[in-house]
Design a protein around this nucleic acid. Sequence first.
DNA 1: TAGGCCATCTGGTCCT
DNA 2: AGGACCAGATGGCCTA
Length: 263
Amino acid sequence: MNSDSSSMSSRASSPDMEDMYLRSHHRPDNRMSSVSSTQNDMLQKMSEEMLSKHGSRGEGESSKYKIKKQLSEQDLQQLRLKINGRERKRMHDLNLAMDGLREVMPYAHGPSVRKLSKIATLLLARNYILMLTSSLEEMKRLVGEIYGGHHSAFHCGTVGHSANHPVHPPNAAHQVHPILGSSLCSNTPSSLSASLPGIGTIRPAHSLLKTPSTPPLSIGSGFQHWAGLPCPCTICQMPPPPQLSVMTTSMSRISAETKDLLK
DNA sequence: TAGGCCATCTGGTCCT
DNA sequence: AGGACCAGATGGCCTA
């Protein structure tokens, strides 16, 4: 999913967004989902009122100029309503995307839990990404340690590798760690750090991120969980193997920093 | 009641 | 020209 609409050559069109989110969000009204029926009625009334007002006024007495002016005014009003509607829809799409982001955050979801604000969602998402990236880094390092001298086996199996290290077949990594294989191949530590300079510099507490109404529970590795709700991340869904104790320690450290953010 | 958050309107700018 | 994006203004709702 390409969420960076500003960087795209062609800007994200609303129909696509509607398509994306309407599938998972059942919206009775295609246009104004979050606008209350009262507000919707009000908007409808406003437009109708303006249209009828401009349509009935000035009949007979007005000059051609006046009629023309009224028509242009009417057109202007219609145009304004049209633009407002588009903007409203755009903001709704943005909010749906924000909801989608909230859903995948390691944060309690539910009617009793207060929704994360937009800014808090973005900041938490950033730190979550940094934390996951850092965990991946550490995992890679540990795998490298475990298989010490066979480090080269964890690089992508290329012709070059098989030529340089005939003892270790190029696909050894995939045989030993099929789960890690793709990740290890797609990013070397150096390239990853280069592409994500923010790693290791997770931001300190932000005043905009507040403690949720439901206090966080610390389970096992120290990763943040909130009452009664499982963490959606894959790391928490599998029990950490004993070899990864170093990683879990690191996870505790990182999650503690994340916890600070929520204060 | 002040402050935070949000939805909406609006005008401007940029892009296709 | 029309549409998308953006930022400022405004008013409503909620909470400490």
